[in-house]
Amino acid sequence: MFAYVVKRLISGVLVLTLVSMGIFLLFWFGPSSPAQPICDRETSNRCTQEKLAVYEKTLGYNNPVYEEYGKFVKGVFVGRTLTIASNEYPCAAPCLGVSFRTKQPVKEELVSRIPATFSVAIGGAFLYLLFGIPIGVAAARRRGTVADKALVSSFLFISSIPYYLFALLTWLYLTITFEVPLFSDTGYFAITEYGPFKWFSGLFLAWVALGIFGCTQYTRFTRGAMVEALSEDYIRTAKAKGLPSRTIVYRHGLRAALVPVVTIFGIDFGTLLAGTIFTERIFEIQGIGWWSLEAVQGRDLPVVMATALFSAVVLIISNLLVDVIYSVLDPRVRLS
């Protein structure tokens, strides 16, 4: 197990290296100069060739790409000082660069946005698991009945709505049309600053949107996995032993059905933690998702790079965790 985790972490570092190289190269050989966005911004769209040349020179875009990548990697480990035009910006390790827009080290803003994104993700996931799994189990036990069919088709309907539309409608109805008073002021309010109630009420609608949407999906996953598990031979054995049906369904059926659900959840949750662009944008939560959206729109290259690397790290770790949990849940799986 330990050796396996080490091996996976090593391959994870390799993936990160490749991802960072890939993004670096994309910028470097992109259609316009990588210095163009910052030049435009600093000169209020009056960027001339001369000015651009200054930016390119100070940002090191005249140097060979491997040299600059080397500097970037070195910055991650020991920190560096970046020069943009005539100004110097110190950037402590682990340095991911300086935002072109705010001139702040990217890492600091990234760290400051993590709590918002994680709050959204954990709350939403908690809600959809809390409802999705039991509803899925209940539907599987009643499969083929009218209730089951109605549930499955209505959930299928909801989950076939594009999520951005669904989230937007949730926001629209609950804050504008009905003006639900407590939760209308959406956004991320740190507990430490605003207290738990404000934190909760600010995030509540985002959780509801994520929770309902995810619940429809997890109900279907769970139902499918449960139907399959309940048709297994060992369920018949459990029944033949004279076990009560609760024990059969939960201890024997659900235990087996959880394995595929956990696998899907691991990947899903990783994506949530890496930032939920629509949720954060619609409910005005200052998380990583929204930030990356802004960075793309503002061509803030260091931030785009940082958010991409952050998603890669989160996904690598969540994948590893899924595999470890998988081996714990299913004794037949041996990690090697």
């Binding site: 297994e232 031979d233 060992y234 018949r236 054995t237 459990a238 032993k241 024997h252 849940l329 037949r332």
Partner: peptide, 18 residues
């Protein structure tokens, strides 16, 4: 499972793997 019991063909499938 008490006064009557049944054993099945494929014991690998009939025993719970977990």
């Amino acid at each position: 499972g008490n006064s009557m019991a049944m054993i099945f063909q494929d014991a690998l499938a009939a025993l719970h793997p977990f």
